[in-house]
């Protein structure tokens, strides 16, 4: 494998997303400011119910992780389908680098703008809503956050291949993976409240990542609302990351083979 070629491809695909963020600052308003409003509404719901202050912090952390989930859905999962629709996909497939480096470039570029949004969410949580994070282990927190992102974007890469095999169904599938997944993953509430349903929810990487991060930043709630120990959650997330990246590679190859044999790689607007 030509490592330099793949690194160049990765940089090449990440570049338009990063430069696009600078050239078209409108995303700051649409992708950063406005989505925070919905999150703020959940905080006010807790205030209207006189909930413990920690729940407001849960919403802030949930807002951070769902931001990445949204980026995975719209910036990764549906992106190859979008590239096919705009006739870029055939160029990617004709070029000599690994397709994984294209997906990794998308992920890195997407993480850039998403991370700006996440920092804004955390700052708003601290400054405006006076959320107090009590971090018990910075190393473990950063480790869990990093591994969760790898697992999450790995899942996005798997979806990207699957969505490419479908047509407009993929687009609509993305939409039903918003609110129902927010509910299953405990975006604005501790997922333990779902009881046995929470076991299914752990299939989505950010459920475990979010639960672990909540335990590490709001230790007073960990005993009552923590699902399992953060160390165990880290271990599961590590296994998920490796598995998802491997499955992503397999499904990408399979998708490409199927597309080539059926001649669907250049079909648009189906």
């Amino acid at each position: 494998m030509n490592v330099m070629l793949n690194l160049r491809a990765l940089k090449g695909r990440a570049y338009p997303r990063m430069i696009g963020a600078v050239r078209e600052p409108s995303w700051m308003f649409w992708d950063t400011f406005l989505p925070i409003l919905s999150m703020a509404a959940y905080i006010y719901v807790y205030r209207s119910l006189d909930a413990p202050k920690e729940f407001e912090g849960f919403v802030v952390l949930g807002g951070v992780m769902t931001t990445y989930w949204m980026n995975v859905l719209w910036g990764m999962a549906s992106q190859l389908y979008w590239e096919k629709e705009t006739a870029n996909l055939q160029l990617y497939l004709a070029a000599p680098m690994s397709k994984m480096s294209i997906l990794a470039g998308m992920a890195l570029g997407g993480m850039f703008s998403t991370s700006v949004r996440c920092i804004s969410i955390i700052l708003i949580g601290i400054v405006i809503f006076k959320v107090e994070f009590v971090v018990t282990s910075v190393g473990l927190l950063l480790g869990i956050f990093g591994v969760t992102l790898v697992a999450l974007y790995g899942m996005g890469m798997v979806f990207a291949s699957l969505f490419l095999m479908w047509g407009r169904e993929a687009w609509h599938l993305n939409m039903i993976m918003e609110e129902p997944i927010y509910f299953l993953s405990g975006y604005s509430f501790p997922v333990k409240a779902l009881g046995s349903l929470s076991a299914f929810a752990t299939v989505i990487p950010f459920t475990l990542g979010l639960d672990a991060m909540r335990q590490l930043t709001f230790p007073s709630m960990a005993a009552q609302w923590g699902l399992v120990s953060p160390h165990l959650e880290l271990g599961i997330l590590l296994v998920m990351s490796i598995t998802l990246l491997y499955v992503a590679r397999l499904s990408l190859d399979r998708m490409e083979r199927m597309g080539r044999s059926k001649g669907t790689l250049t079909m648009r607007w189906q």
Partner: peptide, 17 residues
């Protein structure tokens, strides 16, 4: 599914409090 998911989310918030 999407609207029901949104409602369940709020119901869960109400429940935990």
């Amino acid at each position: 599914l999407k609207p029901v998911g949104g409602s369940l989310l709020l119901l869960a918030m109400y429940y935990v409090v």
